[in-house]
């Protein structure tokens, strides 16, 4: 199967449908925990993004943002949701490529897409 293209997060381009995210082949017992943990991370990401946008401690908040995306990426990989891991990977690239003023929009788009995907995933568990 052709890998989905998540590079649209880097240039405000189109993204795959979040409601069609592939479930892991090995249905992990950890999926409930994964959804809960990722939702929690996304809440934190939203707060930190807003603080970043308001130009509060940009350097410190950038570190936190990188850590949150990296954590979601790692957890997604460990439970076998490769598409989410790929999406995070592209978001990491985007964060480094974009100028400071364009980062918040990208991050909020990342958060919205991921929330929708998770919601859909939770309904299928």
């Amino acid at each position: 199967m052709k890998a989905k293209d998540f590079s649209g997060i880097r240039n405000n381009g189109p993204l795959p449908n979040p409601q069609e995210m592939e479930m892991p082949e090995d249905f992990s017992d950890l999926l409930d925990d994964y959804v809960e943990s990722t939702n929690s991370s996304l809440d934190e990401l939203e707060q930190v993004t807003l603080a970043y946008e308001a130009a509060n401690d940009r350097e410190g908040n950038a570190v936190t943002i990188r850590r949150i995306i990296h954590k979601i990426k790692g957890e997604s990989a460990m439970v076998g949701i490769d598409e989410m891991s790929d999406f995070c990977h592209q978001a990491e690239f985007a964060f480094e490529e974009l100028t400071e003023d364009k980062r918040p929009d990208m991050l909020l788009r990342f958060k919205d897409w991921t929330c929708t995907a998770l919601h859909n995933l939770a309904e299928r568990i």
């Binding site: 992990s28 954590k71 460990m78």
Partner: peptide, 8 residues
Amino acid sequence: DSRITRTS
């Protein structure tokens, strides 16, 4: 820092 990762 991820409990899920530690468990995995």
